[in-house]
Nucleic acid binder design. Structure first.
Length: 330
DNA sequence: AAAGCCTACAACCGCCAAGGG
DNA sequence: GCCCTTGGCGGTTGTAGGCTT
């Protein structure tokens, strides 16, 4: 058969990432920028496949990621966007720049889906268009019936989206600087990760606390066991040399200083986060815009990211959107 | 205190599309 | 046009930690 998955290759580590690995990855991205993931394992000496590195970066380490504590507004947006787009988590995530598709997917699966099912059962959730039920093409339904149902669902989704996005105009997420200024807003969230650097710093603090034998000034990029190496994880790949070769040739403490140095932490952190996030978010947004070349989505994007004053007009446009005029969507 | 259950989420896996040779 | 590599996406799983009994 075809090429074996990278996960099956010998010497490729699986399981939870250690702080050392995180730092190596962050250091690589800081040096080379996100991309060319194929080069990450060879350049850094990480015993992870490129795919795993990319996932770790995009879902966990990438700057500007907010974790946990979904707000009511975010929750509603997800529900409405899911109703409109289906399980297109990446597309949905593009409207919530601080959230990853994985995060949204998890939140949907663990919270919202159950919540909506409950609400439906109790008859409270009827105004939400739940799941993709309207888009399923049952063979028992005639083509005419199906088209009619589809049209009804588009209308319902439109209404639902309109409802969700109009209740709190102030919270509409804007690209670029607004993403970062939002971190300063008071919030009752349990955790708000301002940056990956801070995240890793936290991890490291906990890690060094748990393992008093580790000294920050002696830390190297090694695969030595740590409290994170549960069930021997991390040992399987340390057999090759006992100490993994750090091809970057960087002292961990150096990397740590570079990333979290007291003097430079604030500025470096914000600069890194800011530049990376704004560029990445824009690239990602552009990418998604190109991917979903359907009128209603473009309209939504314009609406969501246009100035507040324009939102009203765009909202009217959105509500004027009809199935007939955009039937080529399907 | 301990066992069992539940929840949340990080990570894995398979599939697909794009791009280059 | 075909094959291979790479990146991206969505579904699913594994497991740590919290909660209940």
């Amino acid at each position: 058969m075809g090429r074996p998955p990278c996960f099956d290759r010998v010497g490729v580590k699986k399981g939870p990432w250690t702080p050392e690995e995180d730092i190596m990855l962050v250091y690589y991205v800081q040096e080379h920028g996100p991309g060319n993931w194929k080069a990450v394992p060879t350049t850094t000496g990480l015993c992870r496949c490129s795919k795993s590195c990319r996932l770790r970066w995009t879902n966990y380490l990438r700057p500007g990621i907010k974790r946990g504590g979904f707000t009511d507004h975010e929750e509603k947006m997800i529900i409405q966007l899911q109703a409109l787009l289906g399980n297109k988590w990446a597309a949905i995530a593009s409207y919530l720049p601080e959230r990853t598709d994985n995060d949204i997917k998890n939140y949907w699966n663990t919270h919202l889906n159950k919540k909506l099912i409950k609400q439906q059962q109790s008859g409270l959730g009827e105004h939400y268009l739940v799941k993709n039920e309207g888009f399923s093409t049952s063979h028992s339904v005639s083509r005419g019936q199906w088209e009619k149902k589809l049209q009804t669902d588009i209308h319902t989704a439109k209404q639902a989206l309109h409802e969700a996005l109009s209740f709190d105009n102030q919270n509409i997420i804007l690209p670029e600087d607004d993403v970062f200024s939002s971190y300063n807003k008071p919030s009752n969230q349990t955790s708000s990760y301002a940056s990956s650097s801070e995240n890793i710093a936290k991890l490291l603090r906990n890690w060094t606390k748990k393992d008093p034998n580790k000294h920050d000034d002696q830390l190297k990029f090694t695969n030595s066991s740590s409290p994170y190496d549960k069930n021997g994880m991390g040992h399987e790949n340390s057999t090759s040399s006992g100490e993994s070769t750090n091809k970057v040739g960087v002292d961990l403490s150096e990397a740590f200083d570079s990333l979290f140095g007291l003097e430079s932490f604030e500025s470096a952190n914000s600069d890194f986060s800011h530049s990376s996030n704004s560029i990445e978010a824009r690239q990602y947004h552009d990418h998604e815009s190109k991917k979903d070349q359907v009128p209603v989505i473009s309209m939504l994007e314009n609406w969501l990211f246009s100035e507040a004053g324009n939102n009203i007009k765009m909202r009217e446009d959105l509500c004027d959107f009809t199935f007939d005029q955009d039937s080529h969507m399907f």
